[in-house]
């Protein structure tokens, strides 16, 4: 198995969690209620923990001496492989909640599929992460329903969030062609197969939230190959500033 293909596939999984975790962590101290400050910090911690495990393994697979920290702190935006959905600004609590839900449902399906990987490191990480992500989806899904089926204002804000984020969801299910051998070998999962279950679960919750599912339209793509929105560069500038100011330092 080509290590380069597995390395890239692992970066796609890890970078999603790292970048979404970063955005989630921005809420710390600014949430609508103290309970949500705690919950969002907890979710951010889980996501960054998942990212750390996956990037650690990516580092081992690459075998070039780049640690998980080197991967997080010393790659350029065009080297990141996360879906663009994860890097969009945090927006209001509606945007954050809807994104957490849309990505969370995908995440549960992906971890579930990866928990059956023939690679024991991947299946082990996935089994642990699956439990955490199930909780994230439950938490976000309950809030989507509360906000959609809350007041006129919360309904309007949440519908606007669904509409704005929807064009970034298609990328989650575009199976990169460079992973064909990995999927055939049972190492990673074909994300395109996860789309029907995702559609069903998302539509179910949006219906209970009295929210409309946006119509079919163009789906943005590029993040899995390093082509991102302008937002990622700013996010990384903040995330990497201390580490890059002291190259070679231990923390």
């Amino acid at each position: 198995m080509a290590p380069a293909a597995l390395f890239t596939a692992l970066c796609r999984v890890g970078d999603d969690r790292l970048i979404l975790g970063h955005r989630t962590s921005e809420w710390c101290g600014h949430a609508p209620i103290l309970e949500e400050d705690i919950a969002l910090a907890n979710i951010a911690l889980d996501l960054i923990g998942q990212a750390t495990l996956v990037l650690q393994y990516a580092s081992a697979v690459e075998g070039a001496g780049r640690t998980e920290d080197a991967l997080a702190y010393f790659r350029e935006a065009v080297e990141f492989r996360n879906a663009m959905l994860c890097e969009l600004p945090r927006g209001d609590f509606g945007v954050t909640t809807v994104r957490q839900f849309l990505h969370g449902v995908f995440s549960v399906l992906q971890w579930d599929a990866l928990s059956r990987s023939v690679d024991p490191t991947i299946s082990g990480i996935a089994a642990k992460a699956l439990k955490e992500s199930r909780y994230h989806v439950r938490h976000a899904g309950e809030w989507v329903i509360r906000l959609g089926d809350g007041t006129a204002e919360s309904h309007a804000r949440t519908q606007a969030a669904v509409d704005a984020l929807w064009p970034y969801t298609g990328e989650l299910f575009m199976q990169p062609t460079d992973e064909a051998d990995l999927v055939a070998g049972g190492l990673t999962a074909d994300v395109s197969l996860l789309a029907p279950a995702w559609q069903q679960q998302v539509r179910d919750v949006l219906a209970r939230a009295t929210l409309q599912v946006p119509g079919d339209g163009w789906m943005h793509r590029g993040g899995r190959d390093g082509r991102h929105t302008e937002h990622l560069g700013h996010l990384l500038a903040e995330m990497q500033i201390v580490a890059r100011s002291h190259p070679g330092a231990q923390w």
Partner: peptide
């Protein structure tokens, strides 16, 4: 939090 210099930190 967003600028912590390592994933562990």
């Amino acid at each position: 939090i967003t600028r912590a210099p390592s994933l562990r930190r």
